[in-house]
């Protein structure tokens, strides 16, 4: 079953075509990687899916719902979460609070609930806090919960960002270069972690990554973008041998 389908998606900035008529079909439960040189349009594609950019043409269908024209918060509520290339946490909020914000679209209480401390709100807050503790444990951040996010070391920040994304109970998780700045051991752990959330939580994962060991190691399908166009798609093996891919990465003549 296809959970996310992109149909001829095009995004332009002035005269620059950042994403040009890209088709993608992401099967449910897969780990789907998008690779390509810098400026190939990978992050732009993420921003189209999450509603921050509105594509000029094409359709984006998530589990039968068209995403084009929806606001980012509506898309998040549908079950799409993301992390960022350069970590973007809520710095002056604690780790637990970051995770609680991640749960926002799964919680309901509003002004009245907070002002009058309604029983329903208190129960909901209690459950949200329980869940935040579970997620803290799940990503291995127990004991760091009350620290401001900006005081955490880099590796912990990455994990917290993942926990925050998972807090929204997404069905599709978009990871933008999760292995950036990691050493080989940390990268290894990250790969195991990505597999684990796919298997245990049943998530579909869409991944942008530069580290070829990660891409080749965990992807079910790899799509290659170059100058906004999809130049090839297939299993890691197929993509590795494709001459157009080698050309895009290494230049003409290398193939």
């Amino acid at each position: 079953m296809i959970i996310l389908q992109l149909d001829h998606v095009t995004k332009q900035f002035g005269g620059l075509v950042a994403v040009s008529s890209v088709d993608l079909e992401v099967p449910q439960g897969s780990i789907f990687s998008i690779i390509g040189p810098n400026g190939a349009g990978k992050t732009t594609l993420f921003n189209c899916i999450t509603g921050f950019y509105r594509p000029e043409a094409g359709r984006i269908i998530f589990d039968g719902v068209s995403l084009v024209g929806l606001r980012p918060d509506q898309i998040a509520a549908l079950g799409i979460a993301r992390t960022y290339q350069n970590i973007r946490l809520f710095g002056r909020m604690t780790a637990i609070e970051n995770i609680l914000v991640g749960q926002h679209s799964r919680l309901k209480s509003g002004l009245a609930g907070a002002l009058f401390r309604l029983p329903r709100t208190r129960r909901e807050e209690q459950e949200a806090l329980d869940k935040a503790h579970q997620l803290l444990d799940f990503v291995g951040l127990s004991g760091y919960g009350d620290m401001f996010a900006h005081n955490l070391p880099y590796g912990q920040q990455r994990r917290l960002e993942l926990a925050r994304a998972l807090a929204s109970e997404p069905r599709l998780l978009l990871l933008d270069e999760p292995a950036a700045g990691m050493n080989p051991k940390e990268t290894e752990e990250l790969m195991a972690f990505i597999r684990r959330i796919r298997d245990e939580l049943g998530l579909t994962i869409l991944l942008i990554e530069h580290d070829m060991r990660v891409v080749m190691g965990i992807s079910d399908i790899v799509a290659v973008l170059d100058f906004g166009e999809k130049i090839c798609e297939g299993t890691p093996q197929e993509v590795r041998c494709n001459p157009r891919v080698i050309e895009a990465y290494l230049g003409k003549g290398a193939a």
């Binding site: 921050f52 809520f90 002056r92 929204s168």
Partner: peptide, 10 residues
């Protein structure tokens, strides 16, 4: 803290 990210969080 970050308006864009807060939107992405729903």
């Amino acid at each position: 803290e970050d308006e864009k990210v807060s939107q992405a969080m729903g």
